[in-house]
């Protein structure tokens, strides 16, 4: 094979180029791809830090900025998910690789067809005058004539060498292809290259590249990112698996018996409360709860306040009363009551 003088790359060259899972761009080499991914897809928009992977960025956002990363930036709509861990060419799911290669090949043959159409050159092995190495096909008369000549030559040799009986003609070979070779002309006369023979790396499921035939645009495939298999062996934990952030100091966790008194307020006081509960428990008194309930029964309206506001995000049940604001409640208390007569006096 001679030196390639073409200005466009081979399909093998195209297929071997590293490409970005998130935006399908391809690059000269892996280093460029990785720096592209760091700048375009794995850069923190808060501080500009460039991380190596989407998982790394997620952890960074979580820990440094207390935010959660939901999607990869600048990614194709179906490639924004964080569940695939991509670094350079690593981690791209197999089916995506297949689709990418198929797309590259389609694009290649489409571009090739367009080139042929633009330059007017025929595809290799398909020029206008038919096959380049068209075999000379002899008519039966010619063959008979040559046979006669051959025999005449043999007879002359026999006469010259004194009757040697060799049937292998010394000079017979340069005379062109034998009739046996020319007996299968179809093999060489086909205007199409033999399937699979000419393009290594060409997937068999691909339809043959007929000039002028445009492959249907199959790309981009629309399948949900959630169906992508998670890459095993990833050493970064999935974002939801992160441990919950530690709570605020001063929050008293385990007060399950949440009477009003126990809920009272600050961390300073709750220590005392617990001491008191322990002391009362030692004394065999069922404390507080009954006390508090008694008080609640005695003074119904204020006790029905919004003190233990409980909610679950979906299934909200707030224990409170929307009718009055805390200030209105407070203003109702005798100690804050306003008596114009008394004030005037």
């Amino acid at each position: 094979m001679g030196k390639k003088k073409r200005g466009h790359p081979d399909v093998e060259e195209l297929l071997s180029r590293p490409w970005c899972y998130y935006c399908e761009r391809d690059f000269e080499d892996l280093k460029l791809l990785i720096s592209h991914q760091k700048a375009k897809h794995f850069k923190c928009d808060r501080c500009g830090r460039r991380l190596n992977t989407a998982g790394g960025l997620s952890v960074h956002m979580n820990q440094v900025h207390k935010e959660s990363l939901s999607s990869v930036e600048n990614a194709l709509p179906n490639r924004q998910g964080l569940e695939v861990e991509i670094f350079g060419m690593e981690g791209i799911p197999e089916d995506i690789v297949q689709q990418h290669n198929q797309r590259i090949i389609q694009n290649y043959y489409q571009a090739q067809a367009e080139r042929y159409a633009a330059t007017g050159n025929p595809p290799p092995g398909q020029n206008g005058k038919g096959p380049a190495k068209k075999l000379k096909i002899e008519s039966p008369d010619d063959i008979k004539k040559r046979l006669a000549e051959h025999r005449a030559r043999l007879a002359a040799q026999k006469a010259a060498t004194g009757g040697s009986a060799t049937h292998t003609p010394q000079e017979g070979l340069p005379n062109g292809p034998s009739p046996v070779q020319s007996a299968s002309p179809g093999t060489f006369n086909s205007p199409f290259p033999p399937p699979g023979g000419q393009y290594p790396g060409y997937p068999p499921q691909q339809p043959p590249p007929v000039p002028g035939y445009t492959p249907p645009a199959q790309y981009p495939p629309a399948y949900p990112p959630s169906s992508l298999p998670t890459r095993p062996g990833s050493n970064l934990p999935a974002p939801p698996g992160l441990p919950p952030r530690p709570g605020q100091p001063g929050w008293q966790g385990g007060n399950t018996a949440s009477t009003i008194d126990e809920l009272v307020s600050g961390a300073a006081q709750s220590g005392d409360d617990i001491d008191q509960i322990i002391r009362m428990a030692e004394a065999g008194i069922k404390p507080k709860k009954s006390d508090a309930e008694g008080e609640e029964a005695a003074a119904p309206p204020p006790a029905a306040e919004k003190k233990s506001k409980k909610d679950k995000d979906k299934n909200v049940r707030m224990v409170y009363e929307d009718e009055l604001s805390p200030e209105e409640r407070m203003a109702m208390m005798p100690r804050y009551a306003f008596h114009p007569e008394a004030a005037a006096a």
Binding site: L263, V264, A303, E305, P326, E327, M330
Partner: peptide, 15 residues
């Protein structure tokens, strides 16, 4: 004290 825990939560020690 802001009433968010009912009047019983209000006591002498409340900051």
């Amino acid at each position: 004290y802001d009433w968010s825990k009912g009047f019983m939560a209000n006591n002498q020690n409340y900051p």
